[in-house]
Design a protein around this nucleic acid. Structure first.
Lengths: 140, 140
DNA sequence: CTTCATGCAAATAATTTGCAGTAAG
DNA sequence: CTTACTGCAAATTATTTGCATGAAG
């Protein structure tokens, strides 16, 4: 169980009800768009404003709590900042699943960066395809 | 030299002046946002409409001529469809550079997909960091 | 208490749409 | 000629901002 309040205070942000809930639903569902977050948090806090979501997402990204996951053909999703990983993205249902990268890819990326004199900060690997569930549906 | 007219006709699209120019500037500069394209093509075709750019980008993506490159914290860029590759993206100046992936990463991605019963269609690898030029600037 | 965060409403930016006129084949 | 494409203007959607009120520490 993650302590969202502490997570926020450590970065100098007040632990408001709204922020706690944003973190909690992002944590629960893994990857959410602005609208997903809004819809979900509204269930427990109906007077929530979209502007608050936008302001907080930007703020929490600056503070390194949230990370943007831009996706081909859709609005970005957001996830909690965590160890580097790749995404399997289903182009049918929109599902996003985390997968740990492993050292091998890591080494490859670092070698390339070194060769190009590129100061690498962050990797982003997205694999687009059709997930097992959607393959089932299509077959039927 | 790429024959843009043929490229378009092969996919059942008319080879208009606008489309030829969009392809030509994207080809020339490698990676461009909607606004970049608009600004550039306007130089040779001042009466161009932004709506035309949007319509054509969508159309050409459907026909597999253009590919979207979504980027953290910015508007997407577009590139000509070509062999799989990764992107080095400079977070200072916005530069995007192509790099060929190599078989090693390819194999890793396919293995993971197989293990997850994921039907892989498309890879997207973006490495974010600071390019050589911007490192120079910072140092000075 | 004091400061920072929220929610609203209004402003701005980004994208899409409908349609009459125009150009490609 | 005929169909598809463009450009405009209007509509829609997405995001940002300013400010008065309210909550956190």
């Amino acid at each position: 169980m993650i302590d969202y309040a502490q997570m926020l205070k450590e970065r100098g942000l007040k632990a408001t009800f709204q922020r706690m809930n944003i973190l909690s639903v992002v944590d629960k569902y893994g990857h959410m768009s602005v609208d997903d977050i809004y819809a979900e948090v509204c269930k427990v806090h109906p007077s929530l404003s979209l502007a608050t979501i936008y302001k907080n997402i930007i703020l929490m990204m600056e503070k390194g709590v949230l990370v943007e996951v831009p996706i081909v053909g859709k609005k970005s999703k957001y996830e909690l900042a965590k160890a580097d990983h790749m995404h399997l993205i289903c182009t049918e249902c929109g599902m996003v699943e985390d997968k740990i990268c492993g050292e091998k890819t890591d080494t490859i990326f670092q070698d390339i960066s070194k060769k190009e004199h590129f100061n690498l900060h962050k990797r982003q690997v997205n694999l687009y395809g059709v997930c097992e569930k959607c393959q089932m549906k299509e077959a039927s």
